[in-house]
């Protein structure tokens, strides 16, 4: 029962934030909308016992990444709005048509069809097995996935170096 209430609230927040991201004319509002979605999704993680991931979501995403976004928005200028005229008028029609088809199809399947979202799902959820505490996540992370873990370290190093190189961009002197 608690889960149902939390799910409805969080889902509503996530969707509202997402719609704000897309529709807001000012990027600042988009960023705030995204922030809302990230928090709502974090709530959904907690509901599903993914404690560590939820914490990381809040600390890294909502904390660090969104700060970075806002910083760049401020750097580039908040007052710049998108132009009204569309360079690709047909794109809107196309995207609208595709989206409409997908929505209709998905709704049709969800409502009328006997659609298994997770076909291999096995009965009731085992609270013990899926309790995503730090200890529980750490064990597979440092055993089965240790190679991928090391690779992410390399990836982050490269990303940091790449960011520094791009930031060193200077206009050529005449």
């Amino acid at each position: 029962m608690v889960e149902t209430i939390l799910f409805v609230l969080a889902a509503a927040g996530a969707l509202a934030g997402a719609v704000t991201v897309v529709l807001a004319r000012n990027p600042i509002y988009s960023a705030v909308g995204l922030l809302g979605t990230l928090f709502s999704v974090a709530v959904l993680y907690v509901v599903q016992l993914a404690h560590l991931v939820a914490a990381v979501q809040v600390i890294v995403y909502a904390g660090a990444v969104m700060t970075l976004f806002l910083f760049v928005i401020m750097l580039i200028g908040v007052d710049k709005e998108e132009k009204r005229e569309e360079n690709l008028p047909r794109q809107r029609l196309w995207v609208g048509a595709v989206a409409g088809v997908i929505i209709l199809f998905a709704a049709g399947v969800a409502v009328f069809g006997d659609f298994a979202w997770v076909p291999a799902a096995t009965g009731p959820v085992d609270q013990e097995a899926t309790n995503g505490t730090v200890q529980a996540i750490a064990e597979p992370l440092f055993t089965d996935w240790v190679l991928a873990f090391e690779a992410t370290a390399l990836l982050l190093t490269i990303a940091a170096a790449g960011a520094v190189v791009l930031a060193m961009f200077r206009r050529k002197r005449n």
Partner: peptide
């Protein structure tokens, strides 16, 4: 040359 055009094709492929 329009990124969004590529995006549409990309999405269509994914669909």
């Amino acid at each position: 040359g329009f990124v969004r055009n590529y995006g549409v094709l990309f999405l269509a492929g994914a669909v």
